[in-house]
Design a protein around this nucleic acid. Sequence first.
DNA 1: GCGACAG
DNA 2: ATCTTGTCGC
Length: 221
Amino acid sequence: MADLAALREEQRAIAARVIAQDALTAAPRFIGGVDISCSRFDPTQRVHAAIVVLEWPGLTEVARAGISCHADLPYITGFLAFREVPAALAAFDQLAVKPDLLMVDGQGIAHPRRCGIAAHLGVMLDLPAIGVGKSRLIGTPEAPLGEAAGSQVRLLDRGEEIGALLRSRAHSNPLWISIGHRVSLATAVKWVRATSRGRRLPEPTRLAHEAAGMVRRAACG
DNA sequence: GCGACAG
DNA sequence: ATCTTGTCGC
Ligand SMILES: [Mg+2]
């Protein structure tokens, strides 16, 4: 029983705090990937978060943290952050090396109230954050996306630019990139590309996904 | 009312 | 989100 109307208001308040201006003048030294895993048997009760920190430019791992905790909400479209952010914050606290930039599995401002998980987490930590979604929540591509790797198009919502689609690899579905906090869209796309290594997902998010699965299995979930 | 719907 | 090794196609 969640008070979705109250959560909606909370999202509007958080969205108002999002900064679309670049805080990343120089290259970030440490880049963190964030993802959450949950069991198919008990999807509403427990979540397992992982953050993997890579050092730029070698993308060598310098720290990681994983944590399991109770989820306050089941998954409800548009309210993902309330389910996953508490666990992500707990994992962040455990990190021996704090990232200068976060790449989060999910949308940033490409959200009905401009408050996807990457924006939500970025504002909570006041850290530069990028949303790296694997599918659409809202928005319309400005034009058909090219087939070649590296192709990109803007993602619009009622004429407003809310993100970009990036074909990170040929013959793969695109990434749905949007800003989370303290980055411009161009910078967000730039760092997704810079941290990609020939796979569909950029390394931070790919490794975080892998790590979260390990945390869940270790917890017998 | 109908369709869409991050993870 | 998750189930799962081999197999198919670019
Ligand atoms: Mg995820």
